[in-house]
Simulated scan of single mutants.
Amino acid sequence: MMAPLPFPDLPAGIARVSLEVDRVDYAAPETSGRQGGVQAGWPLWVARFELDEVDAETADLWRAFVTRLRGRQRLFLGHDTARPYPLAARRGFAGLARAGGGAFDGAALSWAQNIDADGNAAIALTGLPANLPLARGDYIGWRWTAAGSPGGSDDRRALARVVVPAVASGAGAITVTCEPPIDTRVVPAGAVAHLDKPAALFRQVPDKSDIGVIARGSTLSGATMIATQDLRP
């Protein structure tokens, strides 16, 4: 398997991005009139990236990236380009130190997940900067390499978004509620939890995507790409 493509660093940037959880649930009504829902399969992220009119350099980068995806054949690493880092460190982690000492590069030292009776996922992280807040809409990513893959080419990712915020302790430990819960049958205990450009593996949905049109002057407009998460152990 070829390594997933990184998301392009476009000079003109992405005009709009949508990253939301897509659930496949079944209705479970009762004769009493109560309505219920039953999860069928694991929730997956669906991404939408849109470009407005952009310059020739951005157009060439974007078209080359989409072409290299070969429709649905190749994976890429997609992230929320509007929130690549936590809100409290929106420009990155340069200059931040772990509570226990040493530069903080975005990776937690350890993580754990606890699922309560209502199915809520509490994610505990250690090794963060002291008193670092994680806000609603911040992301946590997990990265690991599939067992037996050559040279680390078989990259694996998982992604969750903070829905109940918290602030790290003076020792750099924090517990936040996230959606969707992490499937620990897929994400190994040795995966690295991180806050720097948390991403998921995606495949393009070609029939819902539009490469855009090139106008006079080599500007591109109207480009939209839809992609769905590819979650694999």
Score class of each variant (00 low, 15 high):
Ile174Gly: 02
Ala47Glu: 13
Phe49Trp: 15
Val192Phe: 03
His194Glu: 04
Leu10Asn: 04
Arg48Ser: 14
Ser110Val: 03
Gly137Arg: 01
Gly41Asn: 06
Glu57Trp: 00
Arg156His: 08
Thr175Asn: 01
Ala200Ser: 15
Ala88Asn: 05
Ile226Glu: 08
Gly152Phe: 03
Glu20Lys: 10
Asp154Glu: 14
Ala227Met: 05
Val176Ala: 10
Gly151Leu: 05
Glu57Lys: 01
Thr219Arg: 14
Ala108Trp: 08
Arg157Glu: 13
Pro180Val: 11
Gly119Asn: 08
Asn114Met: 08
Ser149Thr: 15
Thr31Glu: 07
Leu10Ala: 09
Leu77Asp: 07
Thr219Asp: 05
Thr224Ser: 14
Pro43His: 10
Ala168Tyr: 10
Leu5Ser: 07
Asp154Ala: 15
Pro129Met: 12
Ala124Ser: 15
Ala135His: 12
Arg232Leu: 06
His194Cys: 04
Leu195Gln: 11
Arg216Val: 13
Asp25His: 02
Ser218Pro: 00
Val17Gln: 14
Ile14Phe: 08
Phe93Pro: 04
Asp118Ile: 02
Pro86Tyr: 04
Pro233Lys: 04
Leu195Pro: 10
Ile123Leu: 15
Ala199His: 14
Ala200Asp: 11
Leu231Trp: 08
Ala117Pro: 02
Pro188Leu: 03
Pro133Glu: 05
Val192Thr: 15
Asn114Gly: 04
Leu134Tyr: 11
Gly13Tyr: 01
Arg34Gln: 13
Asp210Cys: 01
Gly13Gln: 03
Pro43Gln: 10
Arg63Ala: 00
Val192Arg: 13
Ile174Ala: 01
Gly222Ser: 10
Phe93Glu: 05
Leu44Glu: 10
Ser209Phe: 06
Leu87Met: 11
Ala56Cys: 02
Leu128Pro: 06
Gly222Trp: 09
Ala108Val: 12
Ala147Gln: 12
Ala135Leu: 01
Lys208Tyr: 04
Gly92Lys: 05
Ala166Val: 08
Arg48Met: 12
Val21Tyr: 02
Arg185Trp: 07
Val54Asp: 01
Trp45Glu: 06
Leu69Cys: 09
Ile174His: 02
Asp183Val: 09
Gly13Asn: 03
Asp155Lys: 11
Ile174Asn: 02
Val38Asn: 01
Pro86Ser: 06
Gly102Leu: 07
Phe202Cys: 04
Gly212Asp: 10
Asp105Ala: 13
